[in-house]
């Protein structure tokens, strides 16, 4: 089973990613832990909502507000990074955590790089699925590259100026 970083440890990726062909109007969602695209979730929310093993993934140009009523029951939200230079996902992470109060697994997926882990984690991501494009063991240390910071973010609600001695 492929691996990923979650909660500062290397774990097996137990979730299956459901790719959906646009022409397939009403695809069946298989049993087991599965992450479905936002569009599919919205179309089948009534039936999928009763399951505990369905997560949702968003492209970074999709509207997080579409999920705001679902965050309390979703176990996992994944945000796709099409390329590491595209930083929209950082904002989406903070919106899910800080605005919508999502408490489950917030997973970064796709094209981010090891050197972004510290910022991603500050923006609320706690799981990192990079398809093993970088070495997870050495990447773990990057999570803690910048342990002190000035700004408030998803991981620290108070900016430094409210914490300075």
């Amino acid at each position: 089973m492929p691996k990923l970083i979650k909660d500062k440890a290397i774990v097996e990726n137990a979730w299956q990613w459901l790719a959906v062909n646009d022409e397939d109007a009403a695809p069946t969602v298989p049993v087991g832990q599965v992450i479905v695209p936002l569009k599919l979730w919205l179309a089948q929310r009534d039936t999928l909502g009763s399951r505990q093993d369905v997560g949702v993934y968003l492209q970074n140009d999709e509207n997080p507000e579409d999920l705001k009523d679902d965050v309390s029951k979703l176990p996992l939200i994944a945000i796709e990074f099409p390329a590491f230079m595209d930083g929209r996902g950082f904002t989406l992470g903070r919106l899910f955590r800080e605005r919508y109060g999502f408490k489950g697994e917030l997973r970064a997926a796709g094209g981010f790089i090891r050197d972004q882990l510290t910022y991603l984690s500050r923006c609320g991501f706690n799981a990192f699925d990079c398809n093993e494009t970088f070495d997870l063991d050495s990447a773990l240390s990057s999570l803690n590259d910048l342990p002190e910071y000035y700004q408030a973010a998803a991981d620290q609600e108070l900016p430094l100026f409210r914490r300075r001695d």
Partner: peptide
Amino acid sequence: IIRQWSTLHPEFAF
């Protein structure tokens, strides 16, 4: 104040 806020801002580096 802006220097500190903007330095290593995790959301706005990309």
